[in-house]
């Protein structure tokens, strides 16, 4: 049977690893923003509540940021979503 918390940790680490190239601080915020934009509340609650020892440093810092400060706002264009009046912007994150 799959371990759901381990899956969440793996997802967070994977997101963080793909932001490494933009530098630590930006990567932390981008990871936090990505998780906040795309994760369901129970997934966020799950990773907040669970063991963080397997989290990569950037992912761990992102989870801390999210828990303490909430959404850092859009850090990539992928999370700059279309607004009410926008005519043809799109994404599928």
């Amino acid at each position: 049977m799959k371990d759901t918390h381990a899956a969440l940790v793996r997802m967070a680490n994977q997101i963080a690893r793909n932001f490494v190239a933009i530098g630590h601080d930006r990567a932390v915020l981008a990871t936090a923003d990505h998780i906040d934009s795309f994760w369901d509340p129970r997934m966020k609650a799950g990773i907040f509540a669970g063991d963080r020892s397997s989290l990569d440093p950037i992912a761990a810092a992102a989870i801390d940021h999210l828990q303490q400060h909430g959404d850092p706002g859009p850090q990539t264009r992928a999370t700059e979503f279309a607004k009410k009046g926008d005519l043809h912007n799109s994404d599928a994150g």
């Binding site: 979503f81 279309a82 599928a92």
Partner: peptide, 17 residues
């Protein structure tokens, strides 16, 4: 169809949308 956004690729967190 995606869980984070309404038709037209607008995020659910946008109050106006």
């Amino acid at each position: 169809s995606f869980p984070h956004e309404l038709p037209g690729y607008r995020h659910l967190s946008d109050g106006e949308t």
